[in-house]
Computed example of a mutant assay.
Amino acid sequence: MKNPISSLKEKITQYIQLRFELARLEVIERLVNVMGYFAFMIIAIFLVFLIIFFVFLALAELFNQWFNSYALGYFCTAIVILICSVFVFMASKSIIRFFAGKLAWLLTKQKDEKRMRDDADGSNA
């Protein structure tokens, strides 16, 4: 028969190892979620950049036809791009807050879901 103290020591050691493994897996899960979000955002930004590029190229061609001058058409398009850039820079705090909020949500969503499940299980018991 095993010594009860050594058996208890083995159980405590096993419990600590399992808790450490669980914490490690939770960290990995959060990192994978964040990396997936960043990959999605990079692809989305690239696609939006391409769309904007071709829209401004079409706008330049439209101005070229209106003014019968390539230089004036592209100059007007550059002014439109400059105005759009000013608006983006003016809204930079809102844009940063939006992405920071999304990132914070990604990092905390598992905890919130687990907490809500635990609360629901505790109230039913």
Rank of each mutant, 00 (worst) to 15 (best):
Y15F: 05
K111W: 04
N68R: 14
R97Y: 11
I51F: 10
E26R: 14
L25Q: 14
T77E: 03
A100G: 01
D119W: 13
M90S: 06
M35L: 15
R24E: 11
K114H: 06
I52T: 10
I16P: 00
D119E: 14
Q17I: 06
S92C: 05
L103Q: 07
A125P: 02
L57F: 08
E61W: 12
L62Q: 09
V32I: 15
S85H: 15
F38H: 11
M1V: 07
I96M: 05
F63L: 09
A60G: 15
F54S: 11
F53S: 05
I52Y: 11
F53H: 14
F56I: 02
A71H: 01
L103T: 15
R24V: 14
N64F: 12
V88K: 12
Q17N: 06
L22F: 07
L50F: 13
A60P: 04
I79A: 04
A100D: 11
K109F: 03
I52P: 00
E21T: 08
L103C: 09
A58H: 09
F67W: 01
V80N: 09
I81K: 07
I96F: 03
K111N: 04
W66D: 04
F20W: 09
M90E: 11
Q14F: 10
G73I: 01
A78R: 07
I52H: 08
Y74W: 13
K9W: 00
L62K: 13
L8A: 15
S69K: 07
F63H: 05
I81R: 07
V27S: 07
G73C: 02
L47G: 07
S6H: 05
L59W: 10
A71I: 12
F20G: 04
S94T: 14
T108G: 05
I95P: 01
W66P: 07
Q14C: 04
I83S: 04
I95N: 01
V86A: 12
M35K: 10
F63D: 08
L82K: 10
E113G: 00
G36L: 12
L8R: 08
L107I: 13
M90G: 02
R97E: 14
A23W: 09
G36M: 12
T108M: 02
Y74S: 08
M35C: 09
M1Y: 10
A71S: 10
K9H: 00
K11L: 10
K114W: 03
F46P: 03
E26W: 03
Q110A: 08
M116Y: 09
K9E: 03
I12P: 00
F53N: 05
L25V: 14
R24K: 15
D112W: 13
A39D: 04
I51H: 06
N124E: 15
I52W: 13
L50S: 11
L22M: 02
S85L: 15
A44S: 02
F89L: 06
L8N: 04
R117N: 00
L106I: 13
V86Q: 05
L18W: 02
W105R: 09
I42Y: 08
C76G: 08
I79H: 01
F98L: 03
N68Y: 04
K109H: 10
T108F: 04
F53Y: 12
F56K: 09
A125Q: 12
I96G: 00
F87C: 06
L25R: 15
W105I: 06
F20Q: 09
E29N: 12
Q17R: 05
L47Q: 14
S69Y: 00
S69I: 08
L62F: 15
A125F: 00
Y74Q: 06
S69L: 03
F87K: 12
F20S: 13
M116N: 07
N33Y: 05
A78C: 04
